[in-house]
Design a protein around this nucleic acid. Structure first.
Length: 686
DNA sequence: CACCGTTAAGTTTTT
DNA sequence: CTTAACGGTG
């Protein structure tokens, strides 16, 4: 890399301003990643900063991977020392090395959302509270809320948020934290707050990291929560070489704790910040950019950017009014086919976006019947499947025997005759002795005599013995650094998990067997390229990065040169771009969602940002479809087109009506012209 | 202890 | 229309 001539003036500035706080407001398609990558290589090659001192934090592994790859093709120096990683992986890393400071074992387990929910459920149950009196969901939300703020138990000093320790829910937060530390576990939020606690409690540790990371860069800054902001402030407190890159108009994760104030009020914390705007869009046609700009301009929570492009005007957008969701899917399929046939557009250049996952079903049905190859991006989660979680629990227990959640999950899977009654006895004993479930189980097997007060049948005893034997065997294997795939194999066979699955002849079990096969492939893949793969390393890699390699769908439908049409939620589409985009279900109560409308306030602005994100993914053509009537929860609902459609000036679109019928939407009057028409008469076509 | 029927509820999901 | 969760029975 010797020249920056391919960058525009603003981008160059963003590269060159390396000292002090910098905020780059990078609009959609403004060449953000390219700018960041160039900035990193400028730091290293021109300013002779050691790669060891540069830290780039992203949210997704995908983003981290992409940046790492692009940096490594860009610069020739050793990139190995360069830290480009996710917030969570970064924190997990620090905590593993500094674990002892916090009284944590370095082999701690990381619980995902569903696991922390289980913890809360058992917690409530233990207290004899029905889930109807207090919903575990609410408790979880409360705990998550605290962690998103950066709160940890006993945090003191000047807090920039308020915590009411007399809050009805607060004791649950404390009990939950106790439960996690007993299990030597952390949840995702705890990874961040754990590092905050570490830094605030041990200034010398903080100083060490401050000295190491002299240049810090944060991508997708609009999605940071309070805790991440605090972490960043601590880390950059000395040198203040902090560069954040984001777009307030693409902040779509506030329900996950993202705090848009982090970006809107950055100047308050860093008055000397240099704010740079990347406003030239290289992705989309003029029509698309301008139409999207009109929509987003309605938001008040903005710093204000004026996106522009040198690209052609291109075609106007198309608004397609369909009688129902099936005709909408049919329109998409028809259009995709004709684009492919007549304009030789490849499938992989087309994408369908929707607000909710449930919308994909009808679309999939039609795509299949039109023999259009497609792939769902971010649909079913591989690692959330029962059989995968079961085997992961075995592996976890081996690594961290205090992980009682993992133990309870698998002690009777496959069925060994160790049921709820036995488990209650064991849990009681563990509680009395103040030790973990595993210790009790392990001890009972060795020293039965000490447990005469616990009545266990002979069958249960022998089951426990067998289970213990297996786990202890595997623990030894792990200590002897046997590779993960061999350990996996052993558990799969000797736990009888595979045998009992195969005994079931139903197709469900067959799929499970295949999934386990795939899991093994995943482990093998992990081992490749590592000289000393460990089980702990494997677990870390998959809890913090659940992306699964694209499998080849050998269904015969796949067209290698043309690829597949991509289907995803609008959330899933962030950061991506496609020449041809279909945005389905642009209806009131769906997009914007019913919930956001009833929440009121600024919730609608986030929906608008979401709509804006969807629009700005499109490079050449954008089709926005809506259905007059849609099946929702088994009932046909008539919601009318999304308000966001009306926010696009009329010169920017062509309004097309599919299958005229009696119930037409009159966009001039914004009312249905026939309200009395009965649903039944309406929906028996074919 | 496992299975089946009933009931209730229903966004988005980077880690 | 789905799906998850609970409570009753065999």
């Amino acid at each position: 890399m010797s020249t920056y001539s391919d960058l525009n003036r603003d981008q160059k500035e963003a590269v060159l301003k390396t000292e002090g706080p910098v905020m780059i407001l990078a609009g959609a398609g403004s060449g953000k990643t390219r700018t960041l990558v160039t900035r990193i290589s400028y730091l290293i090659e021109k300013k002779r900063i050691s790669p060891f001192q540069v830290l780039a934090l992203t949210f997704s592994n995908k983003a981290a991977r992409e940046m790492r790859e692009r940096v490594s093709t860009e610069i020739s120096v050793d990139v190995g020392a360069l830290k480009i990683t996710t917030f969570h992986a970064f924190c997990a890393n620090i905590l593993r090395s500094e674990a002892t400071h916090l009284g944590l074992g370095r082999n701690f387990t990381i619980y995902d959302d569903s696991e922390s929910k289980s913890i809360i459920k058992t917690l409530l149950k233990k207290r004899g509270i029905s889930t109807k009196t207090i919903s575990p969901y609410e408790v979880r939300a409360f705990i998550e809320y605290l962690k998103n703020l950066g709160h940890y138990r006993g945090r003191s000093g000047k807090l920039d948020y308020e915590v009411d320790e007399k809050d009805y829910f607060y004791p649950f937060f404390e009990e939950y934290e106790d439960e996690l530390s007993r299990a030597n576990a952390l949840d995702f939020g705890g990874l961040i707050t754990g590092v905050i606690q570490l830094f605030e409690t041990f200034p010398e540790v903080l100083r060490m990291y401050q000295q190491r990371f002299k240049y810090v860069l944060i991508d997708e800054y609009q999605d940071t929560n309070r805790a991440q902001f605090t972490l960043m402030s601590l880390l950059c407190g000395q040198h203040r070489n902090i560069c954040v890159v984001g777009d307030e108009d693409q902040s779509i994760y506030s329900w996950r704790g993202a705090d848009i104030r982090n970006i809107l009020e950055f100047e308050k914390v860093y008055p000397d910040v240099q704010i740079l705007k990347l406003e030239q869009n290289y992705r989309s046609s003029k029509n698309i950019i301008e139409a999207a700009s009109f929509v987003i301009a309605r938001n008040t929570q903005r710093k204000g950017k004026k996106m522009w492009t040198n690209n052609e005007h291109g075609e106007v957008l198309e608004i397609i009014e369909c009688p129902d969701d099936r005709k909408e899917a049919e329109f998409m399929s028809e259009t995709i086919c004709s684009l492919k046939k007549q304009k030789k557009i490849k499938y992989k250049e087309m994408a369908v976006f929707y607000r909710t996952n449930s919308q994909s079903r009808v679309i999939e049905d039609y795509l299949r019947s039109y023999k259009i190859p497609y792939r769902i991006v971010g649909g079913i989660k591989f690692y959330e499947r029962k059989e995968i979680k079961d085997l992961l629990s075995y592996l976890r227990l081996v690594i961290n025997s205090k992980d009682s959640l993992a133990l309870s999950r698998i002690i009777n899977v496959p069925a060994r005759g160790i049921g709820a009654v036995t488990m209650r006895k064991l849990e009681q004993e563990a509680e009395n002795k103040g030790c973990s479930l595993w210790e009790i189980v392990d001890d009972i097997v060795d020293n039965l005599g000490n447990y005469s007060h616990i009545k266990l049948s002979a069958k249960v005893k022998s089951s426990l013995r067998e289970f213990c034997l297996l786990i202890n065997d595997v623990k030894v294997m792990n200590q002897e650094k046997v590779i993960p795939s061999t350990i996996f194999e052993k558990i799969l066979c000797e736990s009888n998990y595979l045998t009992s699955l195969k005994a079931n002849k139903d197709p469900e079990s067959l799929i499970r067997v295949e999934n386990l096969e795939e899991m093994k492939n995943g482990i093998k893949q992990f081992e490749e390229g590592l000289s000393h793969p460990t089980l702990a390393g494997y677990l870390e890699s998959i809890t913090l990065d659940t992306t699964v390699e694209d499998e080849d769908s050998g269904e015969g439908l796949r067209d290698l040169t043309s690829g597949e049409v991509s289907l995803m939620t609008v959330h899933g589409a962030k950061g991506l771009e496609y020449p041809y985009v279909f945005l389905g279900g642009a209806e009131e109560d769906l997009f914007p969602s019913f919930q956001s409308l009833s929440t009121g306030g600024t919730a609608i602005e986030e929906e608008r940002r979401l709509f804006y994100v969807a629009m700005t993914r499109a490079m050449e053509r954008l089709y926005i479809t809506f259905a007059r009537g849609r099946m929702i929860h088994g009932q046909i609902r008539f919601n009318g087109p999304s308000r966001f459609i009306h926010e696009i000036p009329e010169d920017y679109y062509k309004w097309q009506i599919i299958q005229k019928d009696q119930r037409q939407y009159d966009k001039k009057q914004e009312v249905w012209d026939d309200f009395e028409f009965s649903q039944e008469n309406h929906y028996d076509y074919d």
